[in-house]
Design a protein around this nucleic acid. Structure first.
Lengths: 175, 175
DNA sequence: GCGCAAAAGTTGACCAAGTCAACCATTTAT
DNA sequence: ATAAATGGTTGACTTGGTCAACTTTTGCGC
Protein backbone atom coordinates (compact mmCIF):
# COMPACT_ATOMS: atom_id res chain seq x y z
CA UNK A 1 0.00 0.00 0.00
CA UNK A 2 1.34 3.42 -0.96
CA UNK A 3 2.57 5.60 1.85
CA UNK A 4 1.88 9.28 2.27
CA UNK A 5 0.59 10.27 -1.12
CA UNK A 6 -0.74 13.40 0.47
CA UNK A 7 2.53 15.14 -0.23
CA UNK A 8 2.29 14.30 -3.89
CA UNK A 9 -1.34 15.31 -4.04
CA UNK A 10 -0.50 18.59 -2.43
CA UNK A 11 2.30 19.21 -4.91
CA UNK A 12 -0.04 18.32 -7.71
CA UNK A 13 -2.65 20.77 -6.50
CA UNK A 14 -0.01 23.43 -6.26
CA UNK A 15 1.32 22.69 -9.69
CA UNK A 16 -2.19 22.65 -11.03
CA UNK A 17 -2.89 26.12 -9.82
CA UNK A 18 0.39 27.33 -11.16
CA UNK A 19 0.02 25.74 -14.53
CA UNK A 20 -3.58 26.81 -14.93
CA UNK A 21 -2.43 30.36 -14.52
CA UNK A 22 0.37 29.80 -16.96
CA UNK A 23 -1.95 28.36 -19.56
CA UNK A 24 -4.20 31.33 -19.03
CA UNK A 25 -1.33 33.65 -19.81
CA UNK A 26 -0.36 31.71 -22.89
CA UNK A 27 -3.92 31.52 -24.09
CA UNK A 28 -4.23 35.26 -24.00
CA UNK A 29 -2.20 35.46 -27.15
CA UNK A 30 -4.66 33.23 -28.91
CA UNK A 31 -7.60 35.03 -27.40
CA UNK A 32 -6.35 38.23 -28.94
CA UNK A 33 -6.20 36.59 -32.31
CA UNK A 34 -9.20 36.13 -34.53
CA UNK A 35 -9.80 32.63 -33.24
CA UNK A 36 -10.99 30.95 -30.10
CA UNK A 37 -8.92 28.39 -28.29
CA UNK A 38 -11.31 25.75 -29.47
CA UNK A 39 -11.22 27.06 -32.99
CA UNK A 40 -7.46 26.97 -32.91
CA UNK A 41 -7.61 23.39 -31.76
CA UNK A 42 -9.97 22.47 -34.55
CA UNK A 43 -7.66 24.12 -37.02
CA UNK A 44 -4.74 22.25 -35.54
CA UNK A 45 -6.62 18.99 -35.66
CA UNK A 46 -7.52 19.56 -39.29
CA UNK A 47 -3.88 20.03 -40.11
CA UNK A 48 -2.78 17.10 -38.02
CA UNK A 49 -4.88 14.75 -40.12
CA UNK A 50 -3.67 15.36 -43.59
CA UNK A 51 -5.05 12.08 -44.80
CA UNK A 52 -7.08 9.39 -43.22
CA UNK A 53 -8.53 6.36 -44.91
CA UNK A 54 -12.24 6.10 -44.34
CA UNK A 55 -12.71 3.78 -41.44
CA UNK A 56 -16.35 3.02 -41.85
CA UNK A 57 -17.24 -0.66 -42.27
CA UNK A 58 -18.98 -2.22 -45.21
CA UNK A 59 -18.47 -1.93 -48.94
CA UNK A 60 -17.84 1.80 -48.87
CA UNK A 61 -15.22 1.48 -46.21
CA UNK A 62 -13.67 -1.43 -48.08
CA UNK A 63 -13.45 0.56 -51.27
CA UNK A 64 -12.09 3.49 -49.36
CA UNK A 65 -9.42 1.34 -47.80
CA UNK A 66 -8.46 -0.34 -51.03
CA UNK A 67 -8.49 2.63 -53.33
CA UNK A 68 -7.60 5.13 -50.66
CA UNK A 69 -10.24 7.56 -51.66
CA UNK A 70 -12.17 9.85 -49.37
CA UNK A 71 -9.15 11.17 -47.58
CA UNK A 72 -9.24 13.76 -44.89
CA UNK A 73 -11.16 14.13 -41.66
CA UNK A 74 -14.88 14.67 -41.43
CA UNK A 75 -16.64 16.85 -38.92
CA UNK A 76 -17.47 13.81 -36.85
CA UNK A 77 -13.80 12.87 -36.57
CA UNK A 78 -12.92 16.25 -35.21
CA UNK A 79 -15.88 16.20 -32.90
CA UNK A 80 -14.84 12.82 -31.60
CA UNK A 81 -11.22 13.72 -31.07
CA UNK A 82 -11.91 17.01 -29.36
CA UNK A 83 -15.04 15.89 -27.57
CA UNK A 84 -17.13 18.65 -28.99
CA UNK A 85 -20.79 18.90 -29.75
CA UNK A 86 -21.59 18.26 -33.42
CA UNK A 87 -23.67 21.40 -33.51
CA UNK A 88 -20.74 23.38 -32.22
CA UNK A 89 -18.44 21.86 -34.81
CA UNK A 90 -20.86 22.72 -37.56
CA UNK A 91 -20.79 26.37 -36.59
CA UNK A 92 -17.03 26.51 -36.27
CA UNK A 93 -16.58 24.85 -39.62
CA UNK A 94 -19.04 27.23 -41.21
CA UNK A 95 -17.04 30.12 -39.85
CA UNK A 96 -13.86 28.59 -41.23
CA UNK A 97 -15.53 28.05 -44.55
CA UNK A 98 -16.72 31.63 -44.67
CA UNK A 99 -13.19 32.77 -43.88
CA UNK A 100 -11.84 30.58 -46.64
CA UNK A 101 -9.73 28.48 -44.33
CA UNK A 102 -11.18 25.12 -45.25
CA UNK A 103 -12.85 23.36 -48.11
CA UNK A 104 -15.50 20.74 -47.66
CA UNK A 105 -16.25 18.31 -50.44
CA UNK A 106 -18.66 15.43 -50.27
CA UNK A 107 -16.95 12.10 -49.84
CA UNK A 108 -16.94 10.02 -52.99
CA UNK A 109 -18.19 6.95 -51.24
CA UNK A 110 -20.57 8.59 -48.83
CA UNK A 111 -22.03 11.81 -50.05
CA UNK A 112 -23.31 12.83 -46.70
CA UNK A 113 -19.86 12.66 -45.25
CA UNK A 114 -18.21 16.01 -45.78
CA UNK A 115 -14.50 15.61 -46.14
CA UNK A 116 -12.56 18.58 -44.88
CA UNK A 117 -9.24 19.99 -45.86
CA UNK A 118 -7.32 23.13 -45.13
CA UNK A 119 -6.84 25.64 -47.88
CA UNK A 120 -3.68 27.64 -48.37
CA UNK A 121 -5.19 30.36 -46.25
CA UNK A 122 -6.07 27.80 -43.63
CA UNK A 123 -2.53 26.53 -43.43
CA UNK A 124 -1.27 30.07 -43.28
CA UNK A 125 -3.66 30.95 -40.49
CA UNK A 126 -2.60 27.93 -38.49
CA UNK A 127 1.05 28.69 -39.05
CA UNK A 128 0.50 32.21 -37.78
CA UNK A 129 -1.19 30.92 -34.67
CA UNK A 130 1.54 28.41 -34.02
CA UNK A 131 4.23 31.00 -34.56
CA UNK A 132 2.59 33.22 -31.99
CA UNK A 133 2.30 30.38 -29.53
CA UNK A 134 5.91 29.37 -30.09
CA UNK A 135 7.04 32.91 -29.56
CA UNK A 136 5.25 32.93 -26.22
CA UNK A 137 6.86 29.69 -25.17
CA UNK A 138 10.28 30.89 -26.26
CA UNK A 139 9.85 34.06 -24.27
CA UNK A 140 8.64 32.09 -21.31
CA UNK A 141 11.81 30.04 -21.23
CA UNK A 142 14.16 32.79 -22.28
CA UNK A 143 15.48 33.18 -18.77
CA UNK A 144 16.83 29.64 -18.61
CA UNK A 145 20.34 28.70 -19.49
CA UNK A 146 20.99 25.74 -21.75
CA UNK A 147 21.39 23.31 -18.93
CA UNK A 148 18.13 24.31 -17.31
CA UNK A 149 16.39 24.14 -20.65
CA UNK A 150 17.56 20.59 -21.15
CA UNK A 151 16.49 19.71 -17.64
CA UNK A 152 13.06 21.19 -18.17
CA UNK A 153 12.65 19.23 -21.37
CA UNK A 154 13.48 16.01 -19.60
CA UNK A 155 11.23 16.86 -16.71
CA UNK A 156 8.25 17.61 -18.90
CA UNK A 157 8.54 14.39 -20.80
CA UNK A 158 9.02 12.42 -17.63
CA UNK A 159 6.07 14.07 -15.91
CA UNK A 160 3.88 13.32 -18.86
CA UNK A 161 4.83 9.67 -18.76
CA UNK A 162 4.37 9.39 -15.04
CA UNK A 163 0.98 11.02 -15.17
CA UNK A 164 -0.29 9.08 -18.14
CA UNK A 165 0.78 5.83 -16.58
CA UNK A 166 -2.30 6.22 -14.48
CA UNK A 167 -5.26 3.85 -14.35
CA UNK A 168 -6.50 2.89 -17.76
CA UNK A 169 -9.75 4.76 -17.30
CA UNK A 170 -7.85 8.02 -17.17
CA UNK A 171 -5.49 7.31 -20.03
CA UNK A 172 -5.92 9.12 -23.29
CA UNK A 173 -3.25 8.95 -25.94
CA UNK A 174 -2.03 12.32 -27.05
CA UNK A 175 0.90 13.21 -29.20
CA UNK B 1 22.79 33.12 -27.05
CA UNK B 2 20.70 30.06 -26.23
CA UNK B 3 21.05 27.12 -28.53
CA UNK B 4 18.22 25.04 -29.95
CA UNK B 5 15.33 25.99 -27.76
CA UNK B 6 13.05 24.56 -30.38
CA UNK B 7 13.29 21.18 -28.68
CA UNK B 8 12.17 22.65 -25.39
CA UNK B 9 9.39 24.61 -27.04
CA UNK B 10 8.19 21.48 -28.75
CA UNK B 11 8.23 19.56 -25.49
CA UNK B 12 6.36 22.38 -23.84
CA UNK B 13 3.69 22.39 -26.52
CA UNK B 14 3.33 18.68 -26.13
CA UNK B 15 3.10 18.91 -22.39
CA UNK B 16 0.64 21.74 -22.72
CA UNK B 17 -1.71 19.68 -24.79
CA UNK B 18 -1.37 16.77 -22.45
CA UNK B 19 -1.88 18.78 -19.33
CA UNK B 20 -4.78 20.73 -20.74
CA UNK B 21 -6.54 17.47 -21.31
CA UNK B 22 -5.67 16.30 -17.84
CA UNK B 23 -7.01 19.46 -16.27
CA UNK B 24 -10.14 19.00 -18.31
CA UNK B 25 -10.57 15.55 -16.83
CA UNK B 26 -9.97 16.76 -13.31
CA UNK B 27 -12.28 19.70 -13.76
CA UNK B 28 -15.10 17.42 -14.71
CA UNK B 29 -15.50 16.45 -11.10
CA UNK B 30 -15.99 20.05 -10.15
CA UNK B 31 -18.21 20.67 -13.11
CA UNK B 32 -20.51 17.97 -11.88
CA UNK B 33 -20.70 19.60 -8.50
CA UNK B 34 -22.97 22.50 -7.75
CA UNK B 35 -20.24 25.03 -8.40
CA UNK B 36 -18.32 26.41 -11.31
CA UNK B 37 -14.56 26.27 -11.47
CA UNK B 38 -14.48 29.97 -10.89
CA UNK B 39 -16.91 29.71 -8.03
CA UNK B 40 -14.77 27.03 -6.46
CA UNK B 41 -11.78 29.28 -6.76
CA UNK B 42 -13.62 32.12 -5.11
CA UNK B 43 -14.63 29.83 -2.32
CA UNK B 44 -11.07 28.67 -1.97
CA UNK B 45 -9.80 32.21 -1.95
CA UNK B 46 -12.27 33.18 0.73
CA UNK B 47 -11.00 30.37 2.91
CA UNK B 48 -7.38 31.10 2.18
CA UNK B 49 -7.74 34.59 3.64
CA UNK B 50 -9.04 33.95 7.10
CA UNK B 51 -7.98 37.36 8.31
CA UNK B 52 -6.37 40.29 6.69
CA UNK B 53 -5.81 43.67 8.21
CA UNK B 54 -7.32 46.42 6.13
CA UNK B 55 -4.55 47.78 3.98
CA UNK B 56 -6.15 51.02 2.97
CA UNK B 57 -4.19 54.14 3.87
CA UNK B 58 -5.35 56.97 6.07
CA UNK B 59 -6.98 57.05 9.45
CA UNK B 60 -9.27 54.13 8.79
CA UNK B 61 -6.42 51.95 7.66
CA UNK B 62 -4.36 53.05 10.64
CA UNK B 63 -7.08 52.15 13.09
CA UNK B 64 -7.59 48.89 11.27
CA UNK B 65 -3.94 48.07 11.57
CA UNK B 66 -3.67 49.05 15.20
CA UNK B 67 -6.88 47.57 16.51
CA UNK B 68 -7.02 44.80 13.92
CA UNK B 69 -10.62 45.37 13.06
CA UNK B 70 -12.23 44.89 9.71
CA UNK B 71 -10.77 41.45 9.15
CA UNK B 72 -11.48 39.30 6.19
CA UNK B 73 -11.38 39.86 2.46
CA UNK B 74 -13.69 42.11 0.55
CA UNK B 75 -15.11 41.47 -2.89
CA UNK B 76 -12.48 43.70 -4.40
CA UNK B 77 -9.69 41.63 -2.87
CA UNK B 78 -11.06 38.50 -4.44
CA UNK B 79 -11.63 40.25 -7.71
CA UNK B 80 -8.06 41.50 -7.68
CA UNK B 81 -6.50 38.19 -6.80
CA UNK B 82 -8.48 36.18 -9.30
CA UNK B 83 -8.60 38.87 -11.96
CA UNK B 84 -12.33 38.79 -12.20
CA UNK B 85 -14.85 41.41 -13.15
CA UNK B 86 -16.44 43.11 -10.11
CA UNK B 87 -19.85 42.55 -11.60
CA UNK B 88 -19.12 38.88 -11.91
CA UNK B 89 -17.92 38.71 -8.34
CA UNK B 90 -21.06 40.39 -7.14
CA UNK B 91 -23.22 37.75 -8.74
CA UNK B 92 -21.12 34.89 -7.47
CA UNK B 93 -21.16 36.28 -3.95
CA UNK B 94 -24.88 36.79 -4.13
CA UNK B 95 -25.26 33.17 -5.13
CA UNK B 96 -23.05 32.14 -2.22
CA UNK B 97 -25.04 34.33 0.12
CA UNK B 98 -28.28 32.84 -1.05
CA UNK B 99 -26.84 29.38 -0.49
CA UNK B 100 -25.75 30.39 2.99
CA UNK B 101 -22.07 29.82 2.30
CA UNK B 102 -20.87 33.27 3.23
CA UNK B 103 -21.76 36.18 5.40
CA UNK B 104 -21.10 39.76 4.48
CA UNK B 105 -21.00 42.42 7.12
CA UNK B 106 -20.16 46.04 6.54
CA UNK B 107 -16.65 46.96 7.59
CA UNK B 108 -16.60 48.95 10.80
CA UNK B 109 -14.28 51.57 9.36
CA UNK B 110 -15.66 51.63 5.85
CA UNK B 111 -19.30 50.81 5.58
CA UNK B 112 -19.22 50.43 1.86
CA UNK B 113 -16.61 47.76 2.17
CA UNK B 114 -18.36 44.47 2.62
CA UNK B 115 -16.22 42.14 4.64
CA UNK B 116 -16.75 38.54 3.73
CA UNK B 117 -16.40 35.38 5.69
CA UNK B 118 -17.28 31.77 5.19
CA UNK B 119 -20.04 30.28 7.26
CA UNK B 120 -19.95 26.74 8.60
CA UNK B 121 -21.81 25.63 5.50
CA UNK B 122 -19.29 27.49 3.39
CA UNK B 123 -16.37 25.71 4.98
CA UNK B 124 -18.17 22.42 4.61
CA UNK B 125 -18.88 23.06 0.95
CA UNK B 126 -15.26 23.91 0.30
CA UNK B 127 -14.07 20.86 2.17
CA UNK B 128 -16.33 18.69 0.07
CA UNK B 129 -14.96 20.20 -3.11
CA UNK B 130 -11.39 19.75 -2.00
CA UNK B 131 -12.01 16.20 -0.93
CA UNK B 132 -13.39 15.40 -4.35
CA UNK B 133 -10.43 17.03 -6.03
CA UNK B 134 -7.99 15.21 -3.79
CA UNK B 135 -9.68 11.94 -4.50
CA UNK B 136 -9.24 12.57 -8.20
CA UNK B 137 -5.58 13.34 -7.78
CA UNK B 138 -5.04 10.32 -5.61
CA UNK B 139 -6.71 8.12 -8.17
CA UNK B 140 -4.66 9.73 -10.90
CA UNK B 141 -1.42 8.80 -9.18
CA UNK B 142 -2.57 5.49 -7.80
CA UNK B 143 -0.59 3.59 -10.39
CA UNK B 144 2.74 4.95 -9.24
CA UNK B 145 4.96 3.20 -6.75
CA UNK B 146 6.45 5.19 -3.91
CA UNK B 147 9.65 5.94 -5.73
CA UNK B 148 7.84 7.28 -8.76
CA UNK B 149 5.56 9.33 -6.55
CA UNK B 150 8.53 10.96 -4.90
CA UNK B 151 10.10 11.59 -8.26
CA UNK B 152 6.93 13.17 -9.57
CA UNK B 153 6.73 15.43 -6.55
CA UNK B 154 10.26 16.62 -7.12
CA UNK B 155 9.63 17.09 -10.78
CA UNK B 156 6.54 19.18 -10.28
CA UNK B 157 8.22 21.50 -7.83
CA UNK B 158 11.25 21.82 -10.02
CA UNK B 159 9.19 22.49 -13.14
CA UNK B 160 7.27 25.16 -11.35
CA UNK B 161 10.44 26.89 -10.30
CA UNK B 162 12.01 26.66 -13.70
CA UNK B 163 8.93 28.03 -15.39
CA UNK B 164 8.33 30.83 -12.95
CA UNK B 165 11.92 31.94 -13.17
CA UNK B 166 10.85 33.51 -16.42
CA UNK B 167 10.98 37.20 -17.27
CA UNK B 168 9.43 39.39 -14.62
CA UNK B 169 6.52 40.32 -16.84
CA UNK B 170 5.38 36.73 -16.79
CA UNK B 171 5.93 36.10 -13.13
CA UNK B 172 2.99 35.86 -10.84
CA UNK B 173 3.42 34.60 -7.32
CA UNK B 174 1.21 31.69 -6.48
CA UNK B 175 1.25 29.43 -3.50
C1' DG C 1 -17.09 72.91 6.26
C1' DC C 2 -17.35 72.14 0.37
C1' DG C 3 -16.31 69.97 -3.77
C1' DC C 4 -14.22 66.40 -6.15
C1' DA C 5 -11.86 62.31 -7.24
C1' DA C 6 -11.25 57.53 -6.21
C1' DA C 7 -12.87 53.09 -4.37
C1' DA C 8 -16.45 49.56 -3.65
C1' DG C 9 -20.23 47.67 -5.16
C1' DT C 10 -24.57 47.01 -7.74
C1' DT C 11 -27.52 46.77 -11.73
C1' DG C 12 -29.06 45.95 -16.48
C1' DA C 13 -28.00 45.22 -21.08
C1' DC C 14 -25.39 42.52 -23.77
C1' DC C 15 -22.32 38.83 -26.12
C1' DA C 16 -20.10 34.69 -27.14
C1' DA C 17 -19.49 29.92 -25.97
C1' DG C 18 -21.62 25.87 -25.54
C1' DT C 19 -25.72 22.58 -24.97
C1' DC C 20 -30.05 20.32 -26.19
C1' DA C 21 -33.54 18.48 -28.88
C1' DA C 22 -35.57 18.01 -33.06
C1' DC C 23 -34.92 17.21 -37.72
C1' DC C 24 -33.29 15.90 -42.70
C1' DA C 25 -30.43 13.18 -45.70
C1' DT C 26 -27.82 9.28 -46.55
C1' DT C 27 -26.29 4.80 -45.78
C1' DT C 28 -26.13 0.10 -43.78
C1' DA C 29 -28.36 -3.94 -42.02
C1' DT C 30 -32.11 -7.29 -41.80
C1' DA D 1 -38.57 -2.69 -48.22
C1' DT D 2 -38.04 -0.99 -44.19
C1' DA D 3 -35.78 -0.14 -39.95
C1' DA D 4 -31.92 1.65 -37.78
C1' DA D 5 -27.65 3.90 -37.62
C1' DT D 6 -24.51 7.70 -39.26
C1' DG D 7 -23.44 12.46 -40.50
C1' DG D 8 -24.82 16.74 -40.33
C1' DT D 9 -27.74 20.95 -39.76
C1' DT D 10 -30.83 24.19 -37.56
C1' DG D 11 -33.12 26.91 -33.88
C1' DA D 12 -34.00 27.69 -29.21
C1' DC D 13 -31.92 28.10 -25.12
C1' DT D 14 -28.59 28.32 -20.95
C1' DT D 15 -24.59 29.99 -19.01
C1' DG D 16 -20.28 32.18 -18.20
C1' DG D 17 -18.52 36.40 -18.49
C1' DT D 18 -18.02 41.50 -20.10
C1' DC D 19 -19.23 46.45 -20.46
C1' DA D 20 -20.97 50.73 -19.21
C1' DA D 21 -23.66 53.43 -16.30
C1' DC D 22 -24.88 54.54 -11.75
C1' DT D 23 -24.94 54.91 -6.36
C1' DT D 24 -22.78 55.27 -2.17
C1' DT D 25 -19.05 55.89 0.65
C1' DT D 26 -14.59 57.49 1.62
C1' DG D 27 -10.31 60.38 1.24
C1' DC D 28 -8.23 64.73 0.10
C1' DG D 29 -7.21 69.48 -1.08
C1' DC D 30 -8.76 73.74 0.03
Amino acid sequence: MPANRSALVSDLRCFNRFYTGLIGLLDETLTHSAYTLIEARVLFELARRPGHIASSPGKAGFLARVFQIDFGPAASNIAGELQLDPAYITRILRKFSAAGLIEARAGRDASHRRVLSLTMRGHAALAALQDAADRDLTRLTAGLDDEEAAELSDILVRARHLLSGAPASERRERA
